[in-house]
Design a protein around this nucleic acid. Structure first.
Ligand SMILES: [Fe+3]
Ligand SMILES: [Fe+3]
Length: 898
DNA sequence: AATAAAAAAAAA
């Protein structure tokens, strides 16, 4: 079918020639772009499972840019204006975004020229207009969010006529059989999947290196263009993006996957062989640190993949640092999930992934050479590999065969943030592994519920890794997954064992107790210390024996004050918290790991560390004596895990005892029960009754028995409804805190996307100005970047000590390493010191756009060396001048100016 | 009166 002038409409344009090149087309015809993107969608691995015939898929995806037919769009580049059809150039048109115009056009044509696309269902059911709209809005909303509904009046009869002819051409190219009317669930899934595939294909199909511009003449025979140009280019582009099909390796057990496993641990053995429910599976693995549950999860993931229940995996972690560490851990093993001939990408997905040197080194740019050849030449290297296209940003990283990232990257798939459907498409068909699930606050837990629902509804499996979860939370997560599977009726969980594996499928729920790994069982005595002075005494005494001592305090200010007073008494305390510039924090972390980690020995262990919650998770540390401020039970158990964790032949102190600073859990505490002993703690852990119950249970039992006693400790403190769970004096504070926690959960419920509501503008907060957060912060924080003056210009703090960071190519890393986070109520702005305005401007000019423009969010603090140390000035929210001190031993401190 | 840690942030 001849396009009769429609080939002159442009879809992509480049009004100015590239440097160093001559000629070449200045635009890519709209028809060509539509066919390019359709071809990509049809060939994308996984798109065959979307439920559509490839001809139907191609036609629908091609429609995504039909809105570009409107004169307002064509007029955006005057030199590309299709004069042959629209006459002499006119600049004035009714403005409308082309995604919205596209939706309006499709809606207008749905019962006209688009009618042959829709057929009756096998049961004779017919398409209703609202059902057809679900399909069309999925392809129309290709700018990251649902296209808005606009008045059809913006469409001129001419435009409508052009659109009819374009559809006729596409019908002639694809010749799709009618789509039988599907059931509601299938249609809903198709809507979300199609929205993701369309954008995914558009991103690949819009890359000029892979789809060079052609002349209008080249698309005069649209079908010929599709077969001879679009399809072959799409095929090559998919390979070059790193998205070619990857053959999976058959499952051959845990030992084949990991070199370091000589004998599978109990949980690994269980997941290696246990019978699995059919269909999508949720596995909740509750086990101790050191049980090998991460490897167990990968073993299960491989089993599921080998049985066709997943094409790849995504591992979600709570922090960027743990994600980086997981990347290193998987760099070798991930290839074994696939056939030796396959080139799967291992991608790191988080906001600072590009600052991770190992990951950047693994990126292999698409150099235009034959992708198959390039792959073969690298076959022998066992190291991690990532196609550059996938590694260039976090949304694409989710599409890699194996992705590792922050949980936030996955949660954004179920928030109304731009390109959420791309994230969904990345996760769809993958095994989703989520680590450290016990650490979720109410807001993240409710986001997780939404993610479980979505992933299950898309047919995906999930593995959750956790320390003990409360029964309530395990039930909540299980139900969310089953709801996503479309099965109704909660199944009450009854398991009380720990370790425990809960397997959830369409057919039901099974709870499998698991043996603890031999050697991990512990029994730790708990002793109460009445106040911080008693703790100072205990710490000083232990330090004198040469023991490795740690004191975990609940606030940074108390960490600093405690360390100062210990040092005044001659105890050289080390300080570790998060109010350091990242360089210094990393240096302290290295020092702490060298002393108290697995390799630490002899005199280097003889030290006292005063730390905030930074050592509560992830870091593998071992202290002879551990002292801690009272904290909620689950955190306290995590902290206790740092006591005598490794096997050591001799220790300076004989007792295995956790010292907990806590007021006595008397039967009738007054409202200031916790403040009197631990003033800062009340502000950090808001529910005083939870702290009181923790203290009561802990000191009544006098021991932490791991693993056998943990479930009881957790459940007993969690139960706020038990008689005398909330004593009179703490009622007000507790009610307030529980209200806030409930509100945070409700905020998440309001924010998340509803699978059942579909991809429509009105059903979620897509349009709001502030971006929907993945985490709620209690109080707002600002990022402070520290700098010093050197040779008339500002040098990032990190580059001052490490000259190699001073060079231009390390600029972004140097600034990132110079960052500290500070609560806004402490520090709100840093006006440039007199005379340095230009230098500050110049420094900010070298930052990325959002960093530069978010002037009240990212501050630049100039430090000057005084007799008293490094000092800078800033202002509070009420514009009071303050002095800021920075010290590599104590960190950042705020002094009020008098 | 005064609080940990943690993440995100450019399109097709
Ligand atoms: Fe577009
Ligand atoms: Fe497009």
């Amino acid at each position: 079918m001849h396009p009769d002038g429609l080939e002159f409409f442009w879809g992509k344009a480049r009004p100015f020639p590239d440097e160093g090149t001559t000629g070449g087309p200045f635009m890519h015809p709209l028809l060509a772009h539509m066919l390019d993107v359709a071809a990509v969608a049809m060939l994308l691995p996984g798109s065959g499972n979307c439920g559509l015939d490839r001809r139907q898929l191609g036609l629908l995806v091609a429609l995504h840019d039909i809105g570009k037919l409107i004169p307002a769009f064509q007029a955006m580049v005057e030199t590309c204006w299709p004069e042959a059809v629209l006459g002499p150039f006119r600049a004035e048109h009714v403005q409308c975004r082309h995604d919205a115009a596209g939706l309006a056009l499709m809606d207008l044509l749905v019962d006209g020229v688009l009618a042959p696309l829709f057929g009756n269902g096998s049961d004779g059911k017919r398409w209703l207009p609202s059902l057809k709209l679900q399909i069309l809005r999925a392809v129309a909303g290709h700018h990251g969010q649902p296209a808005s509904i606009v008045d059809k009046g913006v469409l001129t009869p001419d435009t409508i006529g052009h659109a009819q002819r374009v559809v006729a051409i596409l019908l002639d190219v694809f010749r799709p059989p009618p789509i039988p009317r599907p059931g509601h669930d299938i249609l809903r899934r198709l809507e979300w999947v199609l929205a993701g595939i369309t954008i995914h294909a558009d991103w690949i199909g819009s890359r000029r290196e892979w789809f060079p511009y052609v002349q209008p003449e080249d698309v005069r025979d649209p079908s010929g263009y599709f077969w001879n140009h679009a399809l072959p280019r799409a095929q090559a582009a998919i390979f070059r993006a790193g998205l070619g099909p990857m053959a999976l390796a058959p499952f051959a057990g845990a030992l084949r996957l990991f070199d370091h496993i000589r004998e599978p641990s109990p949980v690994q053995a269980l997941l290696e062989g246990t019978a699995l429910p059919s269909g999508p599976v949720l596995a909740v693995i509750e086990d101790m640190t050191g049980s090998g549950k991460t490897e167990a999860a990968l073993v299960l993931a491989h089993r599921l993949m080998a049985h066709g229940r997943g094409s790849g995996l995504f591992v979600a972690l709570p922090t960027m640092a743990t994600a980086n560490a997981m990347y290193d851990r998987l760099a070798m093993a991930y290839r074994r999930l696939f056939q030796p001939s396959a080139r799967p990408s291992l991608a790191l997905a988080h906001g600072r992934a590009r600052l991770d040197e190992r990951f950047v080194a693994a990126l292999v740019p698409d150099d235009g050479a034959d992708a198959h050849l390039a792959a073969r030449s690298m076959d022998e290297t066992a190291e991690a590999y990532c196609a550059a296209w996938l590694g260039s940003e976090s949304r694409r990283a989710l599409m890699a065969q194996v992705g590792i990232g922050t949980i936030d990257q996955a949660l954004m798939a179920v928030l109304p943030v731009r390109f959420a459907t791309v994230r969904q498409a990345g996760l769809a068909g993958k095994i989703l592994i989520v680590d450290e699930c016990h650490a979720f606050d109410p807001y993240m837990r409710r986001e997780m519920v939404a993610l479980l629902h979505f992933h299950a509804a898309m047919g995906g499996s999930v593995i959750l890794l956790s320390a003990t979860l409360t029964h309530r939370v395990r039930q909540e997560l299980t139900e969310a997954f089953r709801k996503g599977l479309g099965v109704s009726g909660p199944i009450p969980l009854s398991g009380t064992a720990y370790p425990l594996v809960t397997l959830v499928g369409k057919s039901g729920v099974e709870e499998r107790p698991c043996a603890p790994r031999p050697g991990l069982a512990r029994s730790i005595a708990v002793r109460r210390l009445a106040d911080a002075d008693a703790a100072t005494g205990a710490v000083t005494e232990a330090a004198a024996t040469g023991a490795a001592v740690a004191w975990i305090r609940n606030t940074v200010d108390e960490v600093i004050a405690t360390a100062r007073s210990l040092r005044a008494q001659g105890v050289e305390a080390l300080v570790f918290h998060a109010r350091f510039a990242m360089v210094d924090r990393l240096m302290i972390e290295r020092d702490v790991l060298a002393r108290f980690g697995k390799e630490g020995e002899g005199t280097e262990r003889s030290a006292v560390l005063v730390a905030s919650q930074v050592i509560e998770q992830s870091l593998d540390l071992d202290f002879d004596v551990l002292c801690t401020d009272l904290a909620p039970m689950d955190q306290l158990i995590q902290r206790a895990g740092r006591l005598r964790r490794h096997r050591r032949t001799a220790r300076p102190v004989d007792q295995e005892e956790l010292l907990v600073i806590s007021p006595e859990p008397v039967a009738d505490p007054d409202p200031r029960w916790i403040q009197r002993v631990l003033p800062g703690t009340a502000a950090v852990y808001r529910d005083p009754a939870l702290l009181w119950r923790t203290a009561r249970v802990l000191f009544r039992r006098g021991r932490i028995e791991s693993p056998t006693g943990l479930r009881a400790l957790i459940e007993e403190t969690d139960d706020a409804d038990a008689p005398d769970a909330v004593p009179e004096g703490l009622m007000a504070g507790s009610t307030d805190a529980m209200g806030k926690a409930y509100a945070a959960g409700a905020a998440a419920d309001r924010n998340v996307l509803s699978f059942d509501a579909g991809y429509a503008a009105a059903t979620a907060l897509w349009e709001r100005e502030a971006r929907t957060p993945t985490r709620l912060e209690d109080v707002p924080y600002v990022t402070v970047r520290l700098a010093v003056m050197q040779d008339e210009r500002l040098l990032p703090w990190a580059a001052r000590a490490d000259g190699s960071l001073a060079c231009e190519s390390e600029r972004h890393r140097a600034w990132a390493l110079s960052e500290v986070s500070v609560a806004r109520y402490r520090l709100a702005s840093c006006p440039p010191p007199a005379g340095l305005e230009a230098a500050v401007m110049a420094a900010r000019a070298g930052w990325s756009r959002w960093e530069r423009e978010a002037e009240d969010q990212v501050l630049l603090l100039v430090l000057q060396e005084m007799e008293t140390g490094w000092r800078g000035t800033g202002r509070t929210e009420t514009n009071q001048e303050i002095i800021i001190g920075y010290d590599q031993i104590y960190g950042l401190e705020i002094f009020r100016d008098q």
